[in-house]
Design a protein around this nucleic acid. Structure first.
Length: 889
DNA sequence: ATGGTCACG
DNA sequence: ACGTACGTGACCATT
């Protein structure tokens, strides 16, 4: 059977444009929408394997719909020039792909697709329609599936008539009625004012169509009745406008749309013009002049000396001699966890050559000069993820010092939202010679395999060479963006501090955890038995699906919230269900216990190293978009504390030496202090200068009462408002958190802003600034781009606005504690202290301290933390110590 | 691999 | 009208 893929070109291009970060060719031509469009085409070709394919575009400014309704698409914002200039590129690219495209004066892409899908269906063919426009769901049938883009263009949702029924409770054709009732502001289709999706769906479930709703308008009540009756004509017209016209006079024969694949040379040429090097490589397209664009093409230009074994002493000594002129180094450590990574080898770009040596070649005597070069703090190294390399080498007994520049770290500062700072990606960004991706060399997942040594070493060499070139460009960029000092004075030094903490590790007392585990086990078993008894059957309580069946189908409890796959059973929901059935609190209890058991008892026990008796976390410096650290393998930044049962886990975290103590110091209200500083709000500053209880103070101002009139509940609510402010407040979010109505939440927020006018001004300004600049910054000039701040999609835009409010606050707090860590590291060394910094938990630093240093550390740590930076308000750090982490409270 | 849930700041 | 609090990581069940 034939399969047709019909693409709504304008819709997909639009989605791609707003979803994908700005991207230009070296000549400055915008290509982000083309890029998104291309990846979408590639995925469709791969996944759908179409026999026929067509991309339809809107044509002309006036369509037949304008004849009936002059205002059609009236309110729509103009297409930005950055996008319009990309349409010719897309059309040209389609020719290179050999994919048909079509546009017809007076008709929209929808109508062309509607007509073709009808024709294809009549021939008995299968059709897949790809669009971002929900209206097109009206075309779905047993043979016609509609793929709607989600999350920009990276994901699609597949709609058959059954899926539409499930999601909206409507037949495909009723989608037209839906739009008739609710209208569509983006096309200036009026619908009935005051009727949104929720109301429209309710009406349609009841009456079935626009006509039936209008016929029964007398059954409606109040405002609704009034509106419907007033806007009958609008509803009818809106429905007509939303109806896709399926009789467009096409001048094409169906078989002209047959897709026969692309010519690799033509496609490669098109990609080269667009500078889509990664795609050329990903598809294995021919390079310029026809040679395959594989690693060897680029590597051929490199002068590589590959050293596979320690017998190659001449080469090894040549490598050792060249190290003095070394520029770039790449150390290959395989595996996500650097404490268990396997080092394959390293490559050094030096003196016009790249030396690449396998680990085996470096382990003997001939490798000694290379090992001492690695350990030499006076020998500067430019590399990629040297933090990971340092840890991986550590467990081999090798040292790595003298990190001068790291392109992964610099890449993160230049764009902290770019989740994969790979050498291949960085090379592409700067228009440098292509570097094969690690995936293309090693494969991934179950298919991961180290190739022959020769190939592996060549890959390392290419990466070492690229590092040097990338570094040059990044240094310019860091300077340009004002992040030079942030990099050299903060992040780069911090990297070594973190590696030191991670190598040190922290002792976890296995016996203590096992004891706790046995107690949990008893409680879990008893709880399970009771749950099964009340449910009348045994089931997997850990399965949200099975649990949902028991609670909502078997026991008939009310459904509070749904997830996309079924009933929601999260703690929020269960708490609301507590009064209905005695099984509910038991499930909450079970959840709490099994979380502790699996993640914190069993999980942590697995991470204790046999050789050190410690857990060695990996603090990642290039993950969090705000500038915070993250912690993995295990995550030691989320050890329980809020509930006493879980808090006991902390008793297992103990000092590594007899008679030492765990000392923990945490910033008090650092984020609100930062907010006071950057907003300049006088009242908030005043509160901190006088060291008031900030939540009580907030309650006084929000509720307009005196200090002694603030009760626990008022303080709790004020605290939630303060959290909300830091997160980029919304009335809905606050109402959820406090279990109050949206109106009440909105009133709190208004009260807050009336009192803290400087905070309101800051929130307004930062959003405006993000709009104008496209990014926000922290106090130390850390930057985060927010392209979605201009999105027309309300959700995307709102999210970006909240992020604009939150990131400078969270990020500045992160800057400050990072500064404190670097200073603290220096002070410990300068003062010859034996105390060791072990952990950072966002606003807290954890140390192990010998008894005779307790007094010193009790003053030194808060002093360093409080003076890490000078703000308009004082910083405050509290310090506690004890024989374990639990007692340090 | 993905989604749901829950631990932390 | 829209559907939400900001930032993470680990575990389990399910595909």
């Amino acid at each position: 059977m034939n399969k047709w893929v019909l693409i709504d070109g304008n819709s997909i291009a639009n989605r791609a444009f707003y979803a994908i970060k700005p991207l230009t060719t070296s000549a400055g031509l915008n290509t982000n929408a083309v890029f998104g469009f291309t990846t979408m085409l590639l995925r469709l070709l791969e996944e759908e394997k179409p026999s026929h394919m067509l991309v339809a575009f809107d044509a002309g400014k006036v369509t037949f719909r304008h004849k009936d309704y002059g205002d059609y698409k009236g309110g729509r914002a103009k297409t930005p020039p950055e996008l319009s200039e990309q349409f010719p590129l897309m059309k040209e690219l389609l020719r290179s792909f050999g994919i048909s495209q079509y546009e017809l004066e007076g008709y929209e892409a929808d109508d062309i697709i509607g007509t073709l899908s009808r024709i294809a269906e009549e021939r008995g063919d299968e059709v897949v329609i790809v669009t971002g426009d929900k209206d097109m769901l009206q075309l779905a049938t047993d043979r016609v599936t509609v793929l709607l883009t989600r999350k920009g263009v990276s994901e699609v949702e597949r709609f058959s008539p059954a899926a539409i029924k499930e999601k909206y409770g409507l037949e495909p054709l009723q989608i037209i009625d839906l739009k008739g009732l609710m209208g569509d502001p983006s096309d200036n289709i009026p619908g009935i004012p005051g009727v949104g999706e929720k109301t429209a769906l309710k009406l349609l479930h009841e009456y079935g169509s626009v006509e039936e709703v209008l016929a029964h308008s007398d059954e409606l009540k109040g405002k609704m009745k009034e509106k419907v009756e007033q806007h009958k004509d609008d509803a009818i017209m809106s429905k007509e406008l939303a109806t896709i016209f399926r009789e467009v006079p096409l001048e094409r024969e169906p078989d002209e749309l047959a897709y026969r694949g692309y010519d690799p040379a033509a496609l490669a040429e098109a990609f080269r013009k667009l500078e889509f090097r990664s795609l050329i490589e990903r598809l294995g397209l021919p390079g310029e002049g026809g040679a395959a664009a594989d690693a060897s093409a680029d590597a051929a230009e490199l002068d590589i000396v590959a050293i596979a074994s320690e017998d190659e002493t001449d080469k090894l000594s040549a490598m050792a001699d060249a190290l003095a002129q070394s520029q770039g180094v790449y150390i290959e450590a395989i595996g996500e966890n650097p404490h268990h990574a396997v080092v394959l080898g390293l490559a050094v770009a030096a003196g016009g050559r790249v030396y690449a040596a396998a680990l085996e070649a470096l382990q003997g005597e001939a490798g000694a000069p290379i090992r001492s070069w690695l350990a030499d703090a006076g020998a500067p190294k430019v590399g990629y993820d040297l933090h990971k390399a340092e840890l991986a080498l550590h467990w081999l007994g090798w040292e790595l010092r003298g990190t001068a520049f790291d392109v992964q770290l610099a890449g993160y500062l230049l764009d902290p939202t770019d989740t994969s700072q790979t050498i291949s990606g960085l090379a592409q960004r700067y228009g440098l010679p292509a570097v094969p991706t690690d995936e293309s060399v090693y494969g991934k997942g179950a298919k991961f395999k180290v190739p022959d040594t020769e190939t592996m070493l060549r890959h390392l060499a290419v990466k070492a060479d690229a590092i040097v070139r990338i570094a040059v460009r990044q240094k310019e960029d860091l300077e340009r963006d004002g992040m030079h000092r942030l990099y050299y004075e903060l992040e780069q030094p911090l990297s070594a501090v973190l590696a030191g903490m991670e190598k040190q590790g922290i002792v976890v007392n296995a016996e203590a955890l096992e004891q706790l585990g046995r107690e949990l086990e008893r409680d879990i078993a008893a709880t399970m038995t009771e749950i099964y008894r009340l449910a009348g059957t045994e089931f997997n309580i850990n399965s949200p699906k099975q649990l949902g069946d028991i609670l909502f189908d078997k026991l008939g409890l009310p459904v509070i919230k749904k997830t996309k796959t079924g009933y929601s059973t999260d703690a929020d929901v269960l708490e609301k269900l507590e009064p209905y059935h005695e099984i509910v609190p038991l499930i909450l209890h079970f959840r709490q216990l099994s979380k502790l058991q699996s993640t914190y008892v069993e999980g942590l026990l697995k991470e204790i190293r046999r050789d050190t008796g410690k857990v060695h976390t990996y603090f990642r410096q290039t993950i969090a978009a705000t500038g915070r650290l993250s912690s993995q393998f295990p995550n030691l930044q989320n050890i329980p504390i809020r509930l006493e049962e879980g808090r006991k886990i902390r008793k297992a975290f103990v000092p590594s030496e007899e008679g030492w103590y765990i000392l923990a110091a945490d910033y008090s209200q650092i984020e609100l202090r930062v907010l006071a500083h950057i907003s300049g709000d006088e009242r908030l500053k005043e509160a901190f200068i006088n060291d008031l209880d900030i939540h009580t103070k907030t309650a006084m101002d929000v509720f307009g009462v005196k200090a002694e009139e603030v009760d626990a509940n008022m303080r709790r609510q004020a605290k939630a408002v303060n959290f909300g402010i830091v997160y980029g407040i919304s009335d809905f979010g606050l109402s959820q958190n406090l279990n109050i109505t949206r109106k009440e939440a909105a009133a709190f927020i208004d009260q807050y802003f009336a009192a803290f006018t400087g905070v309101r001004a800051y929130m307004d300004n930062i959003v405006a600034q993000a709009r104008a600049d496209g990014y926000v910054t922290t106090l130390l000039e850390r930057r985060r781009y927010l392209p979605e701040i201009k999105a027309s999609n309300f959700n995307l835009r709102s999210f970006a606005e909240r992020t604009a409010m939150n990131t400078p606050i969270q990020g500045t707090a992160a800057d400050i504690i990072k500064l404190a860590m670097v200073r603290m590291h220096e002070r410990l060394k300068e003062q010859g202290l034996r105390s060791r910094m072990l952990l950072q938990v966002h606003d807290e630093l954890v140390f192990e301290v010998p008894e005779d240093e307790l007094e010193t550390m009790k003053t030194l740590v808060p002093e360093v933390m409080e003076n890490a930076i000078e703000l308009d308000v004082p910083l405050k750090a509290d310090v506690h110590y004890g024989v374990n982490w639990y007692e340090a409270k």
